[in-house]
Design a protein around this nucleic acid. Structure first.
Lengths: 245, 245
DNA sequence: AGCTTTAAATGGTATATACAACTATACCAT
DNA sequence: ATGGTATAGTTGTATATACCATTTAAAGCT
């Protein structure tokens, strides 16, 4: 169907080789990775391409550079105790809270300006909309809007998102490997319909989470907008210095 | 004193020119920026250097790329990057925002239950209190309370924290190497005195940030409580899949 | 032994070039 | 009207080369 003979760019291939070696322990935390020139010789590629691969590692948190010394392995950024890439349910479960899910709307719509800009596509593009209420121990926590380009997901609605995690479907059924997500967090207040759905009073302060999820080819596969009731939400995160040591 | 003859690399200069044009509204959100080739011709630089400048914009959230179409402006709000420990001022600087600082209170007090538990010490321990207003481009952004154990910092108040970064003093003058910080984020509303200090109206929604900073020996060197005006703050973070599992 | 100088290795910046992949448009043939 | 083709413009990938700045270690000198 669509590119079943797809070969990733060289710098991505080298990146993945190095990631494997870090994950397998061949390069341990703090170990020096092969230099740019060294990599270019081993794989018979140009130094700039080797550098691109290393840049990828740095961006993904697998390495850091020190001028004049070298590039060093690091285990990727720790603790996204934030709503993380494994999804909402799994995060709550890890805290011993019973997750819940109710789909309140499913549909296909044409991207307006806002959604188009989040999905980095053009206005009018067809997108799936999934609206869910998120529960923790049966208490409403958040109202979540998910948007996915129709062209990437054929017949998405055959899956039941009260039973299946959206991320699982994306990764296992459609085989998009998710790389990372960008997330912005703001404060807002709930309007009348939002507060009615979540059964709290109008103008309740809430976190507004907007996130964009990218796959390994840096395509936007999903955009979400989530309203988390302020008084029922605490985010926890750990901050580390940029270059570790 | 600090390298007044420093000339930034070309791609940084071009980056800053473009950021200025985005901030000034010459390029509005969604507008197409000059193409890589166009930039390289205007400034008489190579295309790859122009590309580096645009890559910087993308990484800083000022732009996004669409293959085959072009690079488009996007207007980041004041973002707080989670993934660093470098402190408030440096964070704003890296986004091209002029940081500001006003100390509104300096003192030594005895830890109450709350502060004692944050600093992992006993009630009654002597602690420095530093209260500061944080500005970005001269607009009040946050009210920040810092607490440090007196026993770790001899004569701390000889330093001027409107001129010196607290983290710099801790690391350079007292030579504590900072390892990491834990941070909790909640929503609150400003009470009358807080809102008066920040010059906003009472009950304005705000982020409540509480953090604890550890040094290399896992001693708590600082605890902070920060009230960030909700409508002037956006947190930005990147989420990566957990390496475990 | 202790110091300075030199050289090698590393990442950082910059140029020039080429082709691939994708988008939008114009134009033409059916 | 529909579909194909050509073309120009864009970002994406890749090569080859050059020089700079920083770090480290070896070499040389006093």
């Amino acid at each position: 169907m669509i590119k079943n003979d797809y070969i990733p760019p060289v710098y991505i291939q080298i990146r993945d080789i190095l990631i494997d070696k870090i994950n397998s322990g061949e390069f341990k935390k703090g170990n020096q990775l092969p230099s740019e020139r060294e990599i270019s010789e081993t794989y018979k590629i140009s130094r700039m391409t080797a550098r691109s691969a290393l840049t990828q590692l740095v961006e993904m948190g697998y390495a850091y550079r020190v001028k004049g010394k070298g590039t060093f392995a690091r285990l990727p950024k720790i603790n996204r105790d934030f709503v993380n890439l494994c999804g909402f349910s799994q995060m709550l479960k890890s805290k011993g809270i019973k997750p819940g899910n109710k789909v309140v709307k499913l549909g296909i719509l044409e991207a307006n300006k806002k959604i188009a800009s989040l999905l980095e596509t053009t206005i009018g593009t067809k997108v799936y909309e999934i609206v869910r209420i998120r529960y923790g121990n049966n208490i409403p926590l958040a109202l979540e809007f998910s948007y996915l380009p129709v062209r990437l997901f054929n017949d998405l609605f055959r899956y039941d998102f009260e039973k299946n995690s959206l991320y699982k479907v994306i990764e296992e059924k459609y085989e998009y490997k998710l790389k990372y997500a960008k997330q912005w967090i703001r404060i807002t207040t709930l309007n009348s319909s939002e507060s009615r759905i979540l059964k709290v009073k109008e103008n309740t302060p809430a976190f507004l989470l907007e996130s964009i999820t990218y796959d390994m080819d840096d395509r936007v596969v999903e955009a979400t907008r989530s309203l988390n009731i302020g008084e029922r939400t605490t985010f926890y995160t750990e901050l580390w210095p940029n270059s570790e040591k």
